[in-house]
C-alpha cells in the first residue's frame, strides 16, 4: 500500500479544515489554563498555508514546507516554532521520495518527533503535544509490519490515548506550568491539536492509498 507523492496540497487543506472546525474548542481548552489564543492562531496559520498552496500541484513535502513557513514566520508564540519545525522536518524527511509508503511515513513521523523535541525540550508527562506525538510515533513503528493503513490506525488510537493522558497531568512547561496543580484535570490544548493533526493526516493519506 502506498500513494504517489504528487498533487498532495489537498492534505494540508484537509488539515486546515479540521483545525478550523475545532478552532473554538481549542481556544476554550487553552483559555482554561493558557491565554485562549491557540485555536485562533492555529486556524490563522493553517488557513493561510492552505490558501497559498491552492491551485498548485505540490508534493506532500512541498505542501508541508509552505505550512511550516507560515507557522514559523507569521504566527509566533510557542506553537508557531513548535509546529513550524515539526512540519519543516517532516518535509525534509520526504525529500526525493516519489512514493509515500510505510518507510517514508515512518521516517517522516520520526522526524516530526525529533524536531519538536529538539525545539521544545518537552518529555512525555510534561502535559504538552509530546504526550500525543511520542506514543503515536512509537505505535506506528510497532505496527509497521501490519501495513500502512493499519499502522496509521494504530497511530491514531495511540494519539488519542496520549491526548487523554494529559487530563491527569500537571503542566511542567509553557504558560500552563505557572498554574501548577491548578492545571490538573484539563486537557492540554497542544496535545489536542496534535491529535487532530495526526488523525487528519492519517485519514487524508489512508483514503488515497491504492
Amino acid at each position: 500500500m502506498a500513494l504517489a507523492n504528487r498533487n498532495l496540497g489537498v492534505v494540508v487543506a484537509e488539515l486546515a479544515a479540521v483545525i478550523v472546525a475545532n478552532k473554538a474548542w481549542l481556544s476554550e481548552l487553552d483559555g482554561r489554563i493558557g491565554d485562549g489564543d491557540h485555536g485562533a492562531n492555529m486556524a490563522k496559520g493553517f488557513v493561510r498555508a492552505a490558501d497559498r498552496g491552492a491551485g498548485q500541484d505540490p508534493t506532500l513535502g512541498a505542501a508541508l514546507a509552505v505550512l511550516s513557513d507560515v507557522l514559523m514566520g507569521e504566527i509566533g508564540g510557542s506553537m508557531g516554532p513548535l509546529y513550524g519545525v515539526m512540519f519543516d522536518d517532516m518535509a525534509h524527511a520526504l525529500e526525493g521520495v516519489d512514493v509515500i509508503d510505510i518507510t517514508a511515513v515512518d521516517t517522516m513521523l520520526k522526524a516530526a518527533l525529533a524536531g519538536v523535541q529538539a525545539m521544545g525540550n518537552a518529555r512525555v508527562g510534561d502535559k504538552t503535544m509530546i504526550d500525543t506525538l511520542a506514543p503515536a510515533v512509537a505505535a506506528f513503528e510497532t505496527h509497521r509490519d501490519k501495513g500502512l493503513a493499519e499502522a496509521l490506525a494504530r497511530m491514531v488510537a495511540a494519539a488519542e490515548t496520549g491526548r487523554d493522558s494529559t487530563i491527569g497531568l500537571v503542566a511542567r512547561l509553557g504558560r500552563a506550568s505557572r498554574l501548577g496543580e491548578r492545571s490538573r484535570g484539563m486537557l492540554d490544548a497542544g496535545a489536542v491539536s496534535c491529535c487532530l493533526i495526526l488523525t487528519a493526516l492519517a485519514q487524508s493519506l489512508t483514503k488515497r492509498l491504492s
Binding site: 507569521e74 509566533g76 508564540g77
Partner: peptide
C-alpha cells in the same frame, strides 16, 4: 514586537 503576552515571530 509580539501579540499581547505572546512571543514575536521568528521572522520578526
Amino acid at each position: 514586537v509580539g501579540e499581547i503576552f505572546s512571543s514575536p515571530t521568528a521572522n520578526s
